[in-house]
Design a protein around this nucleic acid. Structure first.
Lengths: 132, 132
DNA sequence: ATGATATCAGTAACGATTACTGATATTGAA
DNA sequence: TTCAATATCAGTAATCGTTACTGATATCAT
């Protein structure tokens, strides 16, 4: 049961996310989608982001800054978080899937996967540091 | 300035954390420390956990469950999070520091470190699954 | 001892997120 | 094309973890 019905709002949210590579938060999605549909509710944005994430159509990123970020790119890849400006940036790097096996070696449970994010200063912020 | 003064409350919190290996949350610290000092305030627990973390005496773990966990073991090690019961468990595994270098290869910022946690079913929960 | 001030207990405020409400939109079937 | 069933909506209230404020208390160098 609980068949999923089509909704304009959900399509707008998904389309917006696909147009962005900077992993927006729910609030940023809300502010942007509202320019097309000024009546949309913040609750609707949250509900649909959760729904899309549960369906596997988008990814929810918890990078430790207290706010959830969302990514329309569900392919396996890693993220960098700038501790100065808060930017969340895609990393192009070889797979490190092997670490899951490493972790499972001496562990008596079942390891399903891992979450990794890298932090430091992004290109822009690192440049500003040098100048000062 | 802002010299740090000794406080019984902070000592109690640190001592409690050191007695535990299960990475308690602020609320659990509060409930336990309150058995020794029923007058202690939740705000005091939060303030001192943050203070201790800032001083590097404990580690703050953000494992993605919406609640901060704290660890008195500041040595480098990794954590497993059970997606069923929420337990946070130490992992004994070889260092994977190398992944920071991997990530920095094609990146134009400065990578300072990484955060990784593994998730799945812990020993107890995995056992229950088989039975059912 | 005592003055300066870091810390406290208690409580109010905060921000992100979730839950509730009656109204609206979508859908499969008549 | 209607229609009934119900998923979704907009709007708003409530929740939850955490932080900030307050006047009182504890610590510590002098």
């Amino acid at each position: 049961m609980a068949a999923i019905k089509h909704s304009r709002q959900r399509e707008m949210i998904k389309a917006f996310l696909k147009s962005r590579k900077d992993h927006p938060t729910a609030d940023i999605v809300y502010m942007n989608v509202r320019q097309q549909n000024p009546n949309i509710s913040l609750g609707t944005v949250y509900r649909n982001l959760t729904l899309l994430a549960d369906m596997g159509e988008i990814r929810r990123l918890r990078v430790g800054d207290g706010v959830d970020h969302f990514d329309a790119d569900t392919s396996p890849h890693y993220h960098f978080v700038c501790t100065e400006c808060g930017a969340v940036i895609d990393l192009e790097m070889d797979s490190i899937e092997g670490i899951t096996e490493l972790a499972g070696a001496g562990f008596n449970g079942r390891i399903a996967g891992h979450v990794t994010y890298f932090y430091g200063s992004c290109g822009n912020c690192a440049k500003s540091e040098k100048l000062s």
